[in-house]
Design a binder for these strands. Structure first.
Length: 258
DNA sequence: AGCACA
């Protein structure tokens, strides 16, 4: 608890000698050696002997560790997202929503105390989907949902993201929406030579209804609200859904028809 | 306009 907190506290604390000791004991980022991202591994200064793998464990294990660029807040987002996924899967099975999104409880959403828990601002999603599924549950509010378009997908394709925008910034925009799972940024070369590179973005939601709510809420969203020439977002359903999407082949997401 | 990840 406290030892997870001291890392992020401001540097005016008086235990610096302790920090230095601990930092020497913990290697910088030996999270999960076999899960390293392709472009991410640090250059090895010298090849390790074969018996290296036996004693790498240093008590620094992190369930669900993502070796990408998420640091600090990213951790919390990922962990929280996974907790939300778990909640939602429970909802799918039981048909009951338990303190999902808004609401005071959140006890079941909190990650178990461990690595860096206990350091989270209250950033749980507040923009909730009325009827989660459109089918069965979700009539609690008495508001009927419009049917989803036939090409609805739980992945959104977002254009118009400024090229200097980082993944974290995009996550800030989409994270308040219930069902948010992940943001993926893709940089494309411009069609015209000399043009600006293009940033495409894919955002996953737990289901298509939640994706639709976010899509309509953020359609035309301006990045710089006081700049009239600021780029604005255009959101569509993503065309192809791979295994990450919920409606693969045979899942009802066939050809686009209207 | 431009649709990737596994």
């Amino acid at each position: 608890m406290a030892d997870a907190h001291w890392r992020y506290a401001d540097p005016r604390q008086q235990h610096q000698h302790q920090q230095q000791q601990q930092q020497q004991m913990l290697p910088p980022s030996v999270g999960a050696p076999n899960a390293a991202a392709p472009g991410q591994q640090q250059p090895l200064k010298r090849p390790r002997p074969a018996d290296y793998s036996a004693d790498v464990h240093c008590g620094h294990e992190m369930p669900g560790y993502y070796p990408r660029e998420e640091e600090r807040a990213g951790y919390a987002a990922v962990r929280e997202t996974q907790a939300l996924n778990a909640s939602y899967e429970r909802f799918l099975r039981t048909g009951q929503i338990q303190s999902y999104g808004a609401g005071p409880a959140g006890g079941s959403i909190r990650p178990a105390p461990g690595a860096n828990a206990g350091y989270q601002p209250d950033d749980r999603p507040v923009v909730a989907a009325g009827g989660m599924d459109g089918r069965s549950a979700g009539f609690a509010g008495g508001i009927s949902e419009p049917p989803l378009p036939p090409d609805a997908s739980n992945t959104l394709f977002i254009e118009g993201i400024p090229t200097d925008c980082e993944r974290r910034e995009v996550s800030h925009i989409f994270r308040p929406f219930v069902g948010f799972q992940e943001v993926r940024l893709v940089t494309k070369d411009p069609r015209h030579p000399g043009g600006d590179p293009i940033v495409l973005c894919f955002v996953d939601f737990a289901n298509a209804a939640q994706a639709t709510i976010a899509m309509e809420a953020l359609q035309g969203y301006k990045f710089d609200e006081h700049d009239r020439s600021s780029p604005h977002l255009r959101l569509q359903y993503a065309r192809f859904m791979g295994p990450r999407g919920q409606s693969g082949p045979g899942g009802g997401g066939g050809r686009v028809r209207r």
